[in-house]
């Protein structure tokens, strides 16, 4: 499993995500540290907060949500679109994705073969980006400008 986590982290870093590996007990402290400069009314935590209108969500600076799976081969995250929290990974400026280290699959084909995949999902690899102007890479095209991935392990 350690190999899968390492591979996931290396690949995700290559596509400009910020990676943090923490024990489950230290998760909340890490989130607080990452968001210490953001006013609390600008943060939407899909794990605890009640659903809010999408226009309001679009004005949040940080969206926090738990991912269903990680894919090590490409450093990708799977968002379940049949669950109500999926817009937290799309509308706010910055997305903090939380991932259980036990839920990392080696490759997309392994995940699809497992039968665990929801019917509607988005596989996220890095923050939103475009290279439509002179092939220069710009982050934050229409989705999140930055992507933080917090992987938690059980001690």
């Amino acid at each position: 499993m350690a190999d899968l986590i390492r591979q996931f982290m290396e690949e995700a870093e290559l596509v400009h995500a910020n990676l943090y590996l923490v024990p489950r007990t230290a998760l909340d402290a890490k989130i607080a540290e990452l968001t210490k400069d953001v006013p609390s009314e600008k943060i939407y935590d899909a794990r605890n907060d009640a659903p809010i209108p999408r226009d309001d969500l679009a004005r949040k600076m940080v969206g926090i949500s738990e991912m269903v799976t990680g894919i090590a081969e490409t450093g990708s995250l799977i968002v379940d679109l049949t669950a109500p929290d999926h817009l937290a990974s799309l509308l706010p400026q910055r997305h903090i994705a939380i991932l259980d280290a036990n839920k990392i699959y080696p490759a997309l084909e392994d995940y699809l073969a497992s039968g665990e995949a929801p019917l509607c999902y988005t596989m996220i690899t890095g923050p939103s980006k475009t290279a439509d102007i002179e092939k220069i890479l710009v982050y934050g095209a229409h989705g999140p400008v930055a992507l933080d991935i917090l992987i938690y392990t059980d001690p």
Binding site: V15, S76, H86, I124, T125, S128, G143
Partner: peptide, 17 residues
Amino acid sequence: QKMAGYVSALTPGVSGG
């Protein structure tokens, strides 16, 4: 790119979709 930024699999049934 090794993988595109977003790959979506869609059917009816997207929450709030």
